[in-house]
């Protein structure tokens, strides 16, 4: 059961990676990285069940948080031009 899940998630990871390679805009790549992170989270949980060590869910938990931080940092850079300002766009 979990083997099927792992294979399916790996296939969709490959597809998301293709979108990250193709682009064309930077936002597409950020989107691809974000969905790739989600798939990694689920893949790790599936591998944990597959190998009989479901305690690896903790790892998924960390990834679910980490992935969000990276995405938000990238988007903040693009919207404000810097990571430090909160209203950089109309102050430059």
């Amino acid at each position: 059961m979990f083997a099927v899940a792992a294979v399916g998630i790996l296939v969709s990871m490959t597809l998301a990676l293709a979108r990250a390679f193709l682009g064309p805009t930077v936002y597409d790549r950020i989107l691809a990285a974000n969905t790739f992170g989600t798939k990694t989270v689920v893949l790790l949980a599936a591998i944990g069940f597959l190998t009989g060590r479901p305690d690896w869910i903790d790892l998924s938990l960390i990834y679910a948080l980490i992935n969000f931080i990276g995405t938000i940092a990238a988007l903040k850079l693009f919207e404000f031009g810097t990571l430090a300002h909160t209203r950089g766009r109309d102050r430059e």
Partner: peptide, 22 residues
Amino acid sequence: NLVTAAMLLAIYSLLCASLFTT
């Protein structure tokens, strides 16, 4: 494009971490 490279590096280390887990 360096932002693209940063996002690909994030994917790269997610893959690395999955490998370490397995």
